[in-house]
Nucleic acid binder design. Structure first.
Length: 535
RNA sequence: GGCGGCAUAGCCAAGCGGUAAGGCAGAGGUCUGCAAAACCUUUAUACCUCGGUUCAAUUCCGAGUGCCGCCUCCA
């Protein structure tokens, strides 16, 4: 079960080769990972959420499996869109970008997206960018025209290796007018001469600002070195952004820039790409107004990161129900532990009959003798669940498959607990299984998937109420018209009535409490209540 | 026009040579005085169509149909 000291083979789909490759980092225990961050000029949408949750899970998984991951995720804080926004709002670009960086952090925190090791800003890396551009000019890979510096695409023979395009076809298929100044329309700006009133920095070519692509190269090299293991981002960045990064970086260093390129699929709305022009944009906030952040995370995890996801509130609602199932299971375990602690459920050592049954069972399902890595419909040991989970995650981070292992386990533990509650005892062996199962769930769900971070009981209480996602109004955190103390009193009175079989009066109390937003639930071990709220 | 991806039950979604994981919804059941919640059980005989390869294809190859993406800023 302990995977921490035993790294397993991880396979990653590499955009470069369009196939799964065995992951072998440059350094034995260290992983160098860079993910393109946002351009800070507006609120984050759920497409951003998917990208950063995807890489958050990859980051968490690699760490969990024992790697020391150095993770860099940048901010583009100078760019045309930011300048435009700053002009519109009569603010500085710095004011605009820092505002949206703050908002972004709020969203990521809400989504339990872990902070990367470094979050550099483009404007903090200007000298490094100038250095790269200068050297590229020296080497003949770039040229200056009137204060603009362009990268000479023809000077890099591997251009197109990531996006699997060839230069001739790109030229033939061009839809953009050729800029007279550039030698080749594919050439891209490393440095842009600044216009009047725009923020600018001094450079060997006069006042200007960096082009977009160069910032990632410069920041990646600054924090991680000239060659790194993983570089990620949305699949729209493959061309031209990542293609250009490769061209300039490899021309600059003469070394391989990135070993594994990972790209996540898009979030669609009604099967179409989400975009501002189509006005089908949904921000992270829109969703979090109605749904718990963990519901969104789960929603994404049900689909492989490379597939596109069609976003819908029905889909998130479905994920929400699934999340609830996970919490219910954790809660059931907690309640059950209380019962065993209070000795209301007896722990028994295995009887012969039971042992015989187990043996028969394991003969059916296990092949090995210690159970590790055993595959079967009804695995005996927690190790086999764990192995299947880690195997799934190691196969190009297949969260959907890993999740199915979790749900199988949930069914199994629920059954053990319910059976035990029905017969008022549990076998010691089964109790141990339950305890180990919970440790495994904590590691897989909380540490790696970043969900199940809340107290199960509280979560269920506040998230069980149905969500009206159609009109955007949530019924979460409903008000009740009665105090907790009064509720307890009424429950007591009702149970007295029930003991005397005065059901009509007992039902009256149930009904009146329901009207005040409190639903009673009778269990074997007493009456509990749930807040449903009054509308 | 060039390049690429996808098509699996009511919905979502894994699998990708040996007749189908999981979730949601649905249906049965357990529990309960009733109820609710929870839990358990259950839900695809051709995995878009037509050919081909193979002892065997949802899984490989070819053609077709449909949807989508990239080639322009974009997660």
């Amino acid at each position: 079960m302990d995977k921490k000291n035993k790294k397993q083979d991880i396979y990653i789909f590499n955009t470069l080769s369009l196939s799964k490759e065995r992951f072998k980092p440059i350094n034995e225990d260290k992983v160098l990972m860079y993910v393109c961050g946002i351009t800070a000029y507006d609120l984050s949408h759920i497409g951003h959420a998917r990208a950063y949750i995807t890489f958050d899970i990859i980051y968490r998984f690699l760490k969990n499996v024992g790697y020391n991951v150095i993770y860099v995720r940048n901010f583009t804080d100078i760019d045309d869109k930011i300048i435009k926004k700053a002009n519109e709002e009569k603010k500085t670009t710095e004011a605009v970008s820092s505002k949206y960086i703050d908002e972004y952090h709020k969203d990521m925190d809400a989504l339990s997206v872990l902070s990367p090791s470094y979050e550099p800003k483009a404007t903090e890396t200007i000298p490094e960018m100038i250095e790269v551009a200068s050297k590229l000019i020296d080497k003949g890979n770039a040229y200056e025209i009137n204060g603009d510096v362009f990268f000479r695409v023809n000077s890099f023979k591997d251009y197109g290796k990531l996006s699997h395009k060839n230069i001739d076809e790109l030229i033939a298929g061009s839809r953009i007018p050729i800029n007279e100044e550039k030698e080749n329309f594919l050439d891209f700006a490393l440095w842009k001469k600044s216009k009047e009133g725009e923020p600018s920095w001094d450079s060997p070519w006069g006042k200007g600002r960096p082009g977009w692509h160069i910032e990632c190269s410069a920041m990646s090299m600054k924090f991680l070195g000239e060659s790194i293991d993983i570089h990620g981002g949305g699949s729209d960045l493959i061309f031209p952004h990542h293609e250009n990064e490769i061209a300039q970086s490899e021309s600059y260093t003469g070394k391989n820039f990135v070993n594994y390129w990972i790209h996540n699929g898009f979030v669609n709305i009604n099967s179409e790409k989400m975009s501002k022009s189509l006005k089908n944009f949904i921000t992270v906030r829109d969703v979090l107004e109605k749904f718990h952040p963990e519901s969104l995370r789960l929603f994404f995890m049900f689909t492989h990161y490379r597939s596109f996801i069609d976003f819908s509130y029905e889909g998130i609602e479905s994920a929400r129900q699934s999340l609830l199932r996970l919490y219910q299971s954790a809660n059931l375990y907690n309640e059950f532990k209380k019962l065993t602690d209070e000795k209301r459920i007896v722990i028994k050592d295995a009887k012969e009959k039971y042992t015989a049954l187990k043996t028969a069972n394991s003969a059916l399902t296990s092949v090995g003798n210690n159970g590790t890595g055993v595959k079967g419909k009804n695995p005996e040991n927690i190790e086999s669940y764990s192995a299947q989970f880690y195997d799934s995650m190691s196969d190009d981070f297949n969260t959907a498959k890993a999740l199915s292992v979790i749900f199988d386990l949930v069914r199994k533990t629920n059954k053990i607990i319910k059976d035990a509650m029905a017969q008022n005892f549990i076998e010691r062996q089964d109790l141990k299984f339950l305890d180990l199962a919970m440790i495994f769930m904590k590691r897989s769900l909380s540490d790696i998937f970043g969900i199940l971070n809340e107290d199960p009981k509280l979560f269920i209480e506040s998230n069980s109420a149905p969500i009206n996602y159609e009109d955007g109004k949530t019924k979460i955190s409903p008000a009740i018209a009665i105090s907790g103390e009064e509720i307890e009193k009424l429950i007591e009175r009702r149970n007295e009535l029930r003991n005397n079989k005065e059901y009509a009066s007992a039902d009256k109390i149930r009904k009146s409490l329901l009207e005040k937003g409190v639903a009673l639930e009778d269990t074997n071990f007493g009456t509990t209540y749930k807040i449903t709220g009054v509308n």
